[in-house]
Amino acid sequence: MSSERGENVVEEEPCKVDKWNGTAVKNALDDDIRRIFTKVFEYDENHSLIDNRLRLCSVACMFAIVALIYDYLKPFPESRSVLAFCVLAYFGMMSLLTLYTTMVEKNHFLVTNQKDAAGIDPSDTWCCDSYMKRFDDEYNLVLQFEDGKTKEKRESSITKSVGSWFDENGLLLHELFQNDVCKLHSSLLAEKKDK
């Protein structure tokens, strides 16, 4: 574990947040996990989840823009059928988006691929979920590991007060947080070796 951190010394930018703003705190921690996974562990980030959501949103917005322009070019009674189509399509896209975020995306804010060292086996996947209750200082982090070869899934989680990673001024203490994330990460990897 220590070698993992020793080899990749990454310059962290200081990250200061409004410590009373739960969402900002959570976002800062999520972003730091992204940094740890991509810069320190050097995994490839898999953007497909967020890219799909961006596509869904863009298409929905396109329908709204089409409706707006068409209604401007051909004022109302004429544009009625196109408007009806755009409105239905827009709300269809919205329900699709809701389905997508609840069924597919769930809470994953980061998915990374860990390439097999030999490059033969399919790469392993790491999924990171996090949640924080409103007005609560407990940050829950769930790491999910999926073995590329055996398709076996393991997960491990940590719940800790955000106070342990931020100083009084709201500055994120990268060292401490990275320690905890690394521990969780290596505990999952160790399980793999035990078997």
Partner: peptide, 16 residues
Amino acid sequence: GMIVSSALMIWKGLMV
């Protein structure tokens, strides 16, 4: 954009 679009589409939907 989606917040603006939602308001716009509700209005257009009412028009239809």
